[in-house]
Design a binder for these strands. Structure first.
Lengths: 226, 226
DNA sequence: CTCCTTCCCTAACAAGTGTTTGGTAGGTTA
DNA sequence: TAACCTACCAAACACTTGTTAGGGAAGGAG
Protein backbone atom coordinates (compact mmCIF):
# COMPACT_ATOMS: atom_id res chain seq x y z
CA UNK A 1 0.00 0.00 0.00
CA UNK A 2 1.87 3.06 -1.15
CA UNK A 3 1.42 6.04 1.04
CA UNK A 4 0.89 9.46 -0.34
CA UNK A 5 4.18 9.77 -2.05
CA UNK A 6 2.77 12.10 -4.60
CA UNK A 7 1.70 15.69 -4.27
CA UNK A 8 5.04 17.01 -5.33
CA UNK A 9 7.07 14.85 -7.65
CA UNK A 10 7.29 11.26 -8.57
CA UNK A 11 10.54 10.02 -7.23
CA UNK A 12 11.84 12.43 -4.71
CA UNK A 13 13.60 11.13 -1.68
CA UNK A 14 12.82 13.47 1.08
CA UNK A 15 15.29 13.33 3.94
CA UNK A 16 13.26 15.82 5.89
CA UNK A 17 9.60 16.55 5.98
CA UNK A 18 8.85 13.05 7.13
CA UNK A 19 5.24 13.70 7.93
CA UNK A 20 2.52 16.21 7.48
CA UNK A 21 1.73 15.91 3.82
CA UNK A 22 -1.25 18.10 4.55
CA UNK A 23 -1.46 21.36 2.74
CA UNK A 24 -4.31 23.47 4.06
CA UNK A 25 -7.27 21.71 2.56
CA UNK A 26 -10.46 23.59 3.05
CA UNK A 27 -13.16 21.14 2.16
CA UNK A 28 -13.60 17.68 0.85
CA UNK A 29 -11.56 17.84 -2.31
CA UNK A 30 -12.79 15.97 -5.29
CA UNK A 31 -10.14 14.88 -7.75
CA UNK A 32 -11.50 16.85 -10.65
CA UNK A 33 -14.71 18.64 -11.24
CA UNK A 34 -17.03 15.84 -12.20
CA UNK A 35 -20.73 15.31 -12.50
CA UNK A 36 -22.19 14.68 -9.05
CA UNK A 37 -24.59 12.08 -10.37
CA UNK A 38 -21.89 9.84 -11.77
CA UNK A 39 -19.97 10.37 -8.61
CA UNK A 40 -22.88 9.29 -6.44
CA UNK A 41 -23.49 6.34 -8.74
CA UNK A 42 -19.95 5.10 -8.39
CA UNK A 43 -20.01 5.74 -4.68
CA UNK A 44 -23.14 3.66 -4.21
CA UNK A 45 -21.53 0.89 -6.18
CA UNK A 46 -18.36 1.03 -4.13
CA UNK A 47 -20.40 0.98 -0.94
CA UNK A 48 -22.15 -2.15 -2.10
CA UNK A 49 -18.87 -3.94 -2.75
CA UNK A 50 -17.31 -2.68 0.46
CA UNK A 51 -20.29 -3.95 2.41
CA UNK A 52 -20.20 -7.36 0.77
CA UNK A 53 -16.47 -8.03 0.79
CA UNK A 54 -15.13 -5.77 3.45
CA UNK A 55 -13.13 -2.63 2.79
CA UNK A 56 -9.66 -4.09 2.90
CA UNK A 57 -10.64 -7.16 0.95
CA UNK A 58 -12.07 -5.00 -1.80
CA UNK A 59 -9.65 -3.98 -4.51
CA UNK A 60 -10.09 -0.81 -6.44
CA UNK A 61 -9.94 -2.93 -9.57
CA UNK A 62 -12.99 -4.83 -8.43
CA UNK A 63 -14.98 -1.65 -7.99
CA UNK A 64 -13.90 -0.39 -11.37
CA UNK A 65 -14.80 -3.75 -12.88
CA UNK A 66 -18.27 -3.56 -11.39
CA UNK A 67 -18.61 -0.07 -12.85
CA UNK A 68 -17.50 -1.24 -16.27
CA UNK A 69 -14.30 0.71 -16.33
CA UNK A 70 -10.64 0.33 -15.46
CA UNK A 71 -9.05 0.88 -12.11
CA UNK A 72 -7.21 4.04 -12.98
CA UNK A 73 -10.34 5.68 -14.28
CA UNK A 74 -11.80 5.80 -10.81
CA UNK A 75 -9.15 8.34 -9.94
CA UNK A 76 -10.76 10.82 -12.21
CA UNK A 77 -13.68 10.95 -9.78
CA UNK A 78 -11.95 10.23 -6.48
CA UNK A 79 -8.46 10.88 -5.27
CA UNK A 80 -8.09 7.68 -3.27
CA UNK A 81 -9.81 4.53 -2.19
CA UNK A 82 -9.82 5.84 1.34
CA UNK A 83 -11.62 9.01 0.32
CA UNK A 84 -14.40 6.89 -1.15
CA UNK A 85 -14.85 5.17 2.18
CA UNK A 86 -14.65 8.51 3.93
CA UNK A 87 -17.36 10.04 1.80
CA UNK A 88 -19.61 6.98 2.14
CA UNK A 89 -19.41 7.01 5.91
CA UNK A 90 -19.56 10.75 6.47
CA UNK A 91 -22.59 11.32 4.27
CA UNK A 92 -24.36 8.49 6.04
CA UNK A 93 -23.57 9.93 9.45
CA UNK A 94 -24.66 13.38 8.34
CA UNK A 95 -28.05 12.10 7.30
CA UNK A 96 -28.34 9.95 10.41
CA UNK A 97 -27.79 12.87 12.71
CA UNK A 98 -30.15 15.04 10.73
CA UNK A 99 -32.81 12.44 11.39
CA UNK A 100 -31.95 12.13 15.06
CA UNK A 101 -31.98 15.89 15.50
CA UNK A 102 -35.46 15.98 14.03
CA UNK A 103 -36.53 13.43 16.62
CA UNK A 104 -34.97 15.40 19.42
CA UNK A 105 -36.63 18.57 18.24
CA UNK A 106 -40.01 16.95 18.93
CA UNK A 107 -39.06 16.86 22.60
CA UNK A 108 -40.91 13.67 23.47
CA UNK A 109 -40.84 11.66 26.65
CA UNK A 110 -38.18 9.00 27.23
CA UNK A 111 -40.13 6.06 25.93
CA UNK A 112 -41.49 7.90 22.92
CA UNK A 113 -38.02 9.20 22.19
CA UNK A 114 -36.57 5.70 22.21
CA UNK A 115 -39.35 4.52 19.97
CA UNK A 116 -38.82 7.36 17.54
CA UNK A 117 -35.06 6.83 17.55
CA UNK A 118 -35.47 3.14 16.77
CA UNK A 119 -37.86 3.86 13.93
CA UNK A 120 -35.55 6.51 12.58
CA UNK A 121 -32.61 4.12 12.83
CA UNK A 122 -34.36 1.47 10.80
CA UNK A 123 -35.23 4.05 8.20
CA UNK A 124 -31.57 4.97 7.96
CA UNK A 125 -30.66 1.30 7.64
CA UNK A 126 -33.16 1.14 4.82
CA UNK A 127 -31.71 4.15 3.06
CA UNK A 128 -28.03 3.45 3.71
CA UNK A 129 -27.85 -0.26 4.33
CA UNK A 130 -24.49 -0.60 2.61
CA UNK A 131 -22.97 2.28 4.54
CA UNK A 132 -24.35 0.90 7.79
CA UNK A 133 -22.89 -2.53 7.08
CA UNK A 134 -19.52 -0.95 6.36
CA UNK A 135 -19.77 1.13 9.49
CA UNK A 136 -20.50 -1.97 11.55
CA UNK A 137 -17.48 -3.80 10.28
CA UNK A 138 -14.89 -1.09 10.01
CA UNK A 139 -15.77 1.70 12.41
CA UNK A 140 -13.91 0.34 15.40
CA UNK A 141 -10.78 -0.28 13.39
CA UNK A 142 -11.00 3.03 11.55
CA UNK A 143 -11.78 5.40 14.40
CA UNK A 144 -8.14 5.27 15.40
CA UNK A 145 -6.99 6.93 12.20
CA UNK A 146 -6.94 10.72 12.26
CA UNK A 147 -8.92 11.02 9.07
CA UNK A 148 -11.79 9.08 10.61
CA UNK A 149 -11.74 10.77 13.96
CA UNK A 150 -15.31 11.90 13.38
CA UNK A 151 -16.36 8.28 13.80
CA UNK A 152 -15.28 8.33 17.42
CA UNK A 153 -16.95 11.69 17.90
CA UNK A 154 -20.17 10.36 16.50
CA UNK A 155 -19.96 7.30 18.72
CA UNK A 156 -19.62 9.45 21.81
CA UNK A 157 -22.50 11.65 20.80
CA UNK A 158 -24.50 8.54 20.03
CA UNK A 159 -23.87 7.15 23.49
CA UNK A 160 -24.79 10.39 25.19
CA UNK A 161 -28.06 10.55 23.30
CA UNK A 162 -29.21 6.98 23.87
CA UNK A 163 -27.79 6.48 27.32
CA UNK A 164 -29.16 9.83 28.44
CA UNK A 165 -32.62 8.93 27.20
CA UNK A 166 -32.45 5.59 28.98
CA UNK A 167 -31.39 7.27 32.21
CA UNK A 168 -34.20 9.74 31.92
CA UNK A 169 -36.66 6.93 31.37
CA UNK A 170 -35.32 4.92 34.28
CA UNK A 171 -35.74 7.85 36.65
CA UNK A 172 -39.23 8.73 35.45
CA UNK A 173 -40.39 5.15 35.77
CA UNK A 174 -40.84 4.48 32.08
CA UNK A 175 -38.05 1.91 32.10
CA UNK A 176 -37.06 -0.65 34.67
CA UNK A 177 -34.77 0.67 37.37
CA UNK A 178 -33.01 -2.60 38.12
CA UNK A 179 -30.94 -2.69 34.96
CA UNK A 180 -27.33 -1.83 34.34
CA UNK A 181 -27.95 1.09 32.04
CA UNK A 182 -24.65 0.93 30.24
CA UNK A 183 -25.33 -2.70 29.47
CA UNK A 184 -28.85 -1.78 28.43
CA UNK A 185 -27.51 0.91 26.14
CA UNK A 186 -25.24 -1.55 24.36
CA UNK A 187 -28.09 -4.01 24.19
CA UNK A 188 -30.40 -1.51 22.53
CA UNK A 189 -27.75 -0.11 20.26
CA UNK A 190 -26.60 -3.49 19.02
CA UNK A 191 -30.03 -4.97 18.52
CA UNK A 192 -30.95 -2.10 16.28
CA UNK A 193 -27.84 -1.74 14.18
CA UNK A 194 -26.83 -5.32 13.55
CA UNK A 195 -30.07 -5.64 11.65
CA UNK A 196 -28.14 -4.06 8.80
CA UNK A 197 -26.19 -7.27 8.41
CA UNK A 198 -29.21 -9.18 7.19
CA UNK A 199 -31.66 -6.46 6.18
CA UNK A 200 -32.14 -5.94 2.48
CA UNK A 201 -34.19 -3.01 1.20
CA UNK A 202 -37.23 -4.00 -0.77
CA UNK A 203 -37.93 -7.07 1.31
CA UNK A 204 -41.28 -8.09 2.67
CA UNK A 205 -40.97 -6.03 5.83
CA UNK A 206 -40.89 -2.27 5.76
CA UNK A 207 -38.47 -0.48 8.08
CA UNK A 208 -41.39 0.71 10.17
CA UNK A 209 -42.75 -2.81 10.48
CA UNK A 210 -39.40 -4.17 11.60
CA UNK A 211 -38.98 -1.30 14.01
CA UNK A 212 -42.40 -2.02 15.49
CA UNK A 213 -41.55 -5.66 16.10
CA UNK A 214 -38.12 -4.83 17.48
CA UNK A 215 -39.61 -2.28 19.84
CA UNK A 216 -42.19 -4.77 20.99
CA UNK A 217 -39.48 -7.27 21.88
CA UNK A 218 -37.20 -4.69 23.35
CA UNK A 219 -39.81 -3.02 25.54
CA UNK A 220 -42.00 -5.94 26.52
CA UNK A 221 -39.74 -8.97 26.03
CA UNK A 222 -40.35 -12.18 24.15
CA UNK A 223 -41.67 -14.19 27.09
CA UNK A 224 -45.33 -14.35 28.03
CA UNK A 225 -45.68 -12.19 31.09
CA UNK A 226 -47.35 -13.91 33.97
CA UNK B 1 7.92 -3.24 19.68
CA UNK B 2 8.73 -6.91 19.41
CA UNK B 3 8.54 -9.01 22.48
CA UNK B 4 11.63 -11.11 22.69
CA UNK B 5 10.57 -12.79 25.85
CA UNK B 6 9.05 -16.06 24.89
CA UNK B 7 9.04 -19.79 25.07
CA UNK B 8 8.99 -20.70 28.69
CA UNK B 9 9.24 -24.35 28.07
CA UNK B 10 9.01 -25.60 31.60
CA UNK B 11 6.26 -27.76 32.91
CA UNK B 12 5.78 -29.93 29.94
CA UNK B 13 3.22 -32.55 30.68
CA UNK B 14 2.87 -34.55 27.57
CA UNK B 15 1.07 -37.75 28.40
CA UNK B 16 1.73 -39.72 25.31
CA UNK B 17 4.30 -37.93 23.18
CA UNK B 18 3.99 -40.18 20.19
CA UNK B 19 7.22 -40.58 18.30
CA UNK B 20 5.30 -40.96 15.08
CA UNK B 21 7.20 -38.90 12.54
CA UNK B 22 5.05 -38.66 9.47
CA UNK B 23 1.93 -40.66 9.17
CA UNK B 24 0.02 -39.27 6.18
CA UNK B 25 -2.48 -37.05 7.90
CA UNK B 26 -5.57 -36.51 5.88
CA UNK B 27 -6.84 -34.06 8.44
CA UNK B 28 -5.54 -30.59 9.06
CA UNK B 29 -1.90 -30.76 8.15
CA UNK B 30 0.54 -28.80 10.17
CA UNK B 31 3.53 -27.47 8.32
CA UNK B 32 6.03 -29.39 10.42
CA UNK B 33 5.74 -31.32 13.58
CA UNK B 34 5.89 -28.57 16.17
CA UNK B 35 5.16 -28.21 19.83
CA UNK B 36 1.42 -27.75 20.30
CA UNK B 37 1.93 -25.21 23.05
CA UNK B 38 3.92 -22.82 20.91
CA UNK B 39 1.42 -23.39 18.17
CA UNK B 40 -1.50 -22.49 20.42
CA UNK B 41 0.42 -19.51 21.74
CA UNK B 42 1.02 -18.13 18.26
CA UNK B 43 -2.54 -18.89 17.27
CA UNK B 44 -3.93 -16.96 20.22
CA UNK B 45 -1.70 -14.06 19.32
CA UNK B 46 -2.79 -14.13 15.69
CA UNK B 47 -6.42 -14.27 16.77
CA UNK B 48 -5.93 -11.17 18.88
CA UNK B 49 -4.46 -9.24 15.96
CA UNK B 50 -7.08 -10.52 13.53
CA UNK B 51 -9.81 -9.44 15.89
CA UNK B 52 -8.35 -5.99 16.38
CA UNK B 53 -7.34 -5.14 12.82
CA UNK B 54 -9.45 -7.42 10.69
CA UNK B 55 -8.14 -10.45 8.87
CA UNK B 56 -7.34 -8.86 5.55
CA UNK B 57 -5.85 -5.77 7.14
CA UNK B 58 -3.51 -7.91 9.21
CA UNK B 59 -0.20 -8.76 7.60
CA UNK B 60 1.64 -11.90 8.44
CA UNK B 61 4.61 -9.70 9.23
CA UNK B 62 2.60 -7.95 11.89
CA UNK B 63 1.75 -11.22 13.60
CA UNK B 64 5.36 -12.34 13.45
CA UNK B 65 6.45 -8.99 14.81
CA UNK B 66 4.09 -9.34 17.74
CA UNK B 67 5.52 -12.79 18.37
CA UNK B 68 9.07 -11.51 18.26
CA UNK B 69 10.09 -13.33 15.13
CA UNK B 70 10.25 -12.86 11.39
CA UNK B 71 7.45 -13.41 8.93
CA UNK B 72 8.89 -16.48 7.31
CA UNK B 73 9.34 -18.20 10.63
CA UNK B 74 5.61 -18.45 11.06
CA UNK B 75 5.59 -20.92 8.22
CA UNK B 76 7.43 -23.39 10.32
CA UNK B 77 4.28 -23.67 12.44
CA UNK B 78 1.57 -22.99 9.90
CA UNK B 79 1.39 -23.53 6.20
CA UNK B 80 -0.53 -20.39 5.39
CA UNK B 81 -2.17 -17.33 6.85
CA UNK B 82 -5.52 -18.72 5.83
CA UNK B 83 -4.90 -21.93 7.74
CA UNK B 84 -4.33 -19.90 10.90
CA UNK B 85 -7.72 -18.30 10.45
CA UNK B 86 -9.21 -21.68 9.65
CA UNK B 87 -7.86 -23.24 12.80
CA UNK B 88 -8.94 -20.32 14.96
CA UNK B 89 -12.50 -20.45 13.71
CA UNK B 90 -12.91 -24.21 13.56
CA UNK B 91 -11.61 -24.86 17.06
CA UNK B 92 -13.93 -22.17 18.36
CA UNK B 93 -16.91 -23.68 16.58
CA UNK B 94 -16.00 -27.14 17.83
CA UNK B 95 -16.01 -25.98 21.41
CA UNK B 96 -19.16 -23.96 20.91
CA UNK B 97 -21.08 -26.93 19.61
CA UNK B 98 -19.73 -29.14 22.33
CA UNK B 99 -21.22 -26.69 24.81
CA UNK B 100 -24.52 -26.46 22.94
CA UNK B 101 -24.76 -30.23 22.71
CA UNK B 102 -24.31 -30.47 26.45
CA UNK B 103 -27.21 -28.05 26.86
CA UNK B 104 -29.37 -30.04 24.50
CA UNK B 105 -28.55 -33.26 26.30
CA UNK B 106 -30.22 -31.84 29.41
CA UNK B 107 -33.50 -31.83 27.46
CA UNK B 108 -34.97 -28.77 29.14
CA UNK B 109 -38.11 -26.89 28.28
CA UNK B 110 -38.05 -24.12 25.64
CA UNK B 111 -37.49 -21.23 28.00
CA UNK B 112 -34.89 -23.03 30.08
CA UNK B 113 -33.16 -24.13 26.89
CA UNK B 114 -32.97 -20.57 25.61
CA UNK B 115 -31.65 -19.44 28.96
CA UNK B 116 -29.02 -22.15 29.02
CA UNK B 117 -28.01 -21.42 25.43
CA UNK B 118 -27.57 -17.76 26.18
CA UNK B 119 -25.46 -18.48 29.24
CA UNK B 120 -23.38 -20.96 27.29
CA UNK B 121 -22.93 -18.43 24.49
CA UNK B 122 -21.59 -15.80 26.85
CA UNK B 123 -19.22 -18.34 28.31
CA UNK B 124 -17.92 -19.05 24.83
CA UNK B 125 -17.55 -15.33 24.19
CA UNK B 126 -15.54 -15.19 27.37
CA UNK B 127 -13.31 -18.07 26.36
CA UNK B 128 -12.92 -17.20 22.69
CA UNK B 129 -13.61 -13.53 22.49
CA UNK B 130 -11.05 -12.98 19.75
CA UNK B 131 -12.36 -15.86 17.67
CA UNK B 132 -15.93 -14.63 18.12
CA UNK B 133 -14.99 -11.14 17.03
CA UNK B 134 -13.29 -12.53 13.95
CA UNK B 135 -16.28 -14.71 13.25
CA UNK B 136 -18.58 -11.73 13.49
CA UNK B 137 -16.62 -9.71 11.00
CA UNK B 138 -15.51 -12.30 8.49
CA UNK B 139 -17.95 -15.20 8.58
CA UNK B 140 -20.36 -13.85 6.03
CA UNK B 141 -17.62 -13.02 3.60
CA UNK B 142 -15.77 -16.27 4.21
CA UNK B 143 -18.61 -18.76 4.08
CA UNK B 144 -18.56 -18.48 0.32
CA UNK B 145 -15.10 -19.97 0.04
CA UNK B 146 -14.99 -23.76 -0.17
CA UNK B 147 -12.46 -24.06 2.60
CA UNK B 148 -14.81 -22.32 5.00
CA UNK B 149 -17.95 -24.09 3.95
CA UNK B 150 -18.33 -25.37 7.49
CA UNK B 151 -19.18 -21.84 8.52
CA UNK B 152 -22.35 -21.94 6.45
CA UNK B 153 -23.13 -25.40 7.80
CA UNK B 154 -22.73 -24.16 11.34
CA UNK B 155 -24.94 -21.18 10.63
CA UNK B 156 -27.71 -23.43 9.35
CA UNK B 157 -27.43 -25.72 12.32
CA UNK B 158 -27.39 -22.70 14.56
CA UNK B 159 -30.61 -21.40 13.05
CA UNK B 160 -32.35 -24.77 13.32
CA UNK B 161 -31.43 -25.00 16.98
CA UNK B 162 -32.46 -21.51 18.06
CA UNK B 163 -35.42 -21.09 15.74
CA UNK B 164 -36.69 -24.54 16.63
CA UNK B 165 -36.51 -23.77 20.31
CA UNK B 166 -38.33 -20.49 19.79
CA UNK B 167 -41.06 -22.24 17.81
CA UNK B 168 -41.43 -24.84 20.49
CA UNK B 169 -41.72 -22.15 23.12
CA UNK B 170 -44.24 -20.18 21.10
CA UNK B 171 -46.48 -23.21 20.72
CA UNK B 172 -46.28 -24.22 24.37
CA UNK B 173 -47.08 -20.72 25.55
CA UNK B 174 -43.69 -19.93 27.02
CA UNK B 175 -43.05 -17.23 24.43
CA UNK B 176 -45.37 -14.72 22.84
CA UNK B 177 -47.26 -16.04 19.86
CA UNK B 178 -47.67 -12.72 18.10
CA UNK B 179 -44.07 -12.37 16.99
CA UNK B 180 -42.44 -13.05 13.66
CA UNK B 181 -40.24 -15.90 14.79
CA UNK B 182 -37.61 -15.51 12.12
CA UNK B 183 -37.24 -11.89 13.14
CA UNK B 184 -37.18 -12.95 16.77
CA UNK B 185 -34.47 -15.47 16.01
CA UNK B 186 -32.26 -12.85 14.43
CA UNK B 187 -32.99 -10.52 17.30
CA UNK B 188 -31.92 -13.07 19.89
CA UNK B 189 -28.94 -14.26 17.92
CA UNK B 190 -27.59 -10.78 17.27
CA UNK B 191 -28.14 -9.45 20.76
CA UNK B 192 -26.08 -12.28 22.15
CA UNK B 193 -23.19 -12.41 19.76
CA UNK B 194 -22.49 -8.76 19.09
CA UNK B 195 -21.59 -8.52 22.74
CA UNK B 196 -18.24 -9.91 21.64
CA UNK B 197 -17.48 -6.57 19.99
CA UNK B 198 -17.27 -4.79 23.31
CA UNK B 199 -16.84 -7.57 25.84
CA UNK B 200 -13.37 -7.97 27.30
CA UNK B 201 -12.55 -10.96 29.50
CA UNK B 202 -11.54 -10.05 33.01
CA UNK B 203 -13.90 -7.11 33.21
CA UNK B 204 -16.17 -6.31 36.10
CA UNK B 205 -19.02 -8.44 34.82
CA UNK B 206 -18.76 -12.21 34.65
CA UNK B 207 -20.24 -13.94 31.62
CA UNK B 208 -22.99 -15.36 33.79
CA UNK B 209 -23.84 -11.92 35.13
CA UNK B 210 -24.05 -10.45 31.65
CA UNK B 211 -26.12 -13.39 30.48
CA UNK B 212 -28.51 -12.90 33.37
CA UNK B 213 -29.04 -9.24 32.52
CA UNK B 214 -29.38 -9.95 28.82
CA UNK B 215 -31.92 -12.67 29.50
CA UNK B 216 -33.84 -10.35 31.75
CA UNK B 217 -34.09 -7.75 29.01
CA UNK B 218 -34.75 -10.27 26.30
CA UNK B 219 -37.47 -12.16 28.14
CA UNK B 220 -39.18 -9.38 30.08
CA UNK B 221 -38.26 -6.24 28.17
CA UNK B 222 -36.79 -2.99 29.40
CA UNK B 223 -40.07 -1.16 29.92
CA UNK B 224 -41.97 -1.23 33.18
CA UNK B 225 -44.91 -3.54 32.57
CA UNK B 226 -48.25 -2.00 33.40
C1' DC C 1 -13.47 24.68 -38.35
C1' DT C 2 -10.90 24.94 -33.63
C1' DC C 3 -10.76 24.92 -28.63
C1' DC C 4 -11.94 23.02 -24.45
C1' DT C 5 -13.94 20.11 -21.13
C1' DT C 6 -15.52 15.61 -19.67
C1' DC C 7 -14.59 10.95 -19.02
C1' DC C 8 -12.31 7.09 -19.75
C1' DC C 9 -8.13 4.00 -21.44
C1' DT C 10 -3.31 2.26 -21.70
C1' DA C 11 0.57 1.31 -19.35
C1' DA C 12 3.23 1.55 -16.12
C1' DC C 13 5.30 2.43 -11.12
C1' DA C 14 6.77 1.50 -6.23
C1' DA C 15 5.57 -0.45 -2.17
C1' DG C 16 3.59 -4.18 0.11
C1' DT C 17 1.79 -8.95 0.06
C1' DG C 18 2.00 -14.13 1.30
C1' DT C 19 5.24 -17.56 0.68
C1' DT C 20 9.57 -20.38 -0.25
C1' DT C 21 14.26 -21.86 0.02
C1' DG C 22 18.38 -22.63 2.29
C1' DG C 23 20.88 -22.02 6.27
C1' DT C 24 22.04 -22.32 11.32
C1' DA C 25 22.38 -21.88 16.64
C1' DG C 26 21.39 -24.75 20.34
C1' DG C 27 19.77 -28.53 22.58
C1' DT C 28 18.89 -33.72 22.67
C1' DT C 29 19.95 -38.29 21.51
C1' DA C 30 22.80 -42.24 19.94
C1' DT D 1 32.14 -37.73 19.38
C1' DA D 2 28.54 -37.33 15.52
C1' DA D 3 23.93 -37.31 13.97
C1' DC D 4 19.56 -35.26 14.58
C1' DC D 5 15.72 -32.34 15.62
C1' DT D 6 13.54 -28.03 16.80
C1' DA D 7 12.68 -23.32 16.00
C1' DC D 8 14.13 -19.73 14.13
C1' DC D 9 16.75 -16.21 10.63
C1' DA D 10 18.08 -14.12 6.11
C1' DA D 11 17.01 -13.18 1.72
C1' DA D 12 14.72 -13.52 -1.77
C1' DC D 13 10.50 -14.79 -5.00
C1' DA D 14 6.13 -13.90 -7.67
C1' DC D 15 2.34 -11.44 -7.35
C1' DT D 16 -1.08 -7.86 -5.96
C1' DT D 17 -1.95 -3.48 -4.30
C1' DG D 18 -3.25 1.63 -4.74
C1' DT D 19 -1.90 5.12 -7.60
C1' DT D 20 -0.11 8.04 -11.49
C1' DA D 21 1.08 9.96 -16.14
C1' DG D 22 -0.12 10.69 -20.65
C1' DG D 23 -3.23 10.20 -24.28
C1' DG D 24 -7.50 10.16 -26.85
C1' DA D 25 -12.50 9.87 -28.24
C1' DA D 26 -16.80 12.41 -27.88
C1' DG D 27 -19.31 16.45 -27.76
C1' DG D 28 -20.55 21.13 -26.95
C1' DA D 29 -19.19 26.26 -27.50
C1' DG D 30 -16.92 29.96 -29.90
Amino acid sequence: MPKNVSATQTNQKNPQNPKNPNPPKSQKDRAVSASPERRAELLALAAEVFAAQGYNATTVRRIADEAGMLAGSLYYHFDSKESMLDEILSTFLDELWAGYDAVLAADLGPRATIEALVVESFREIDRHHAAVAIYQKEAQHLSGLPRFGYLADSQKRFERLWLGTLERGASTGAFRADLDLRLTYRFVRDTVWVAASWYRPGGQHSPEEIARQYLSMLLDGIAVQS
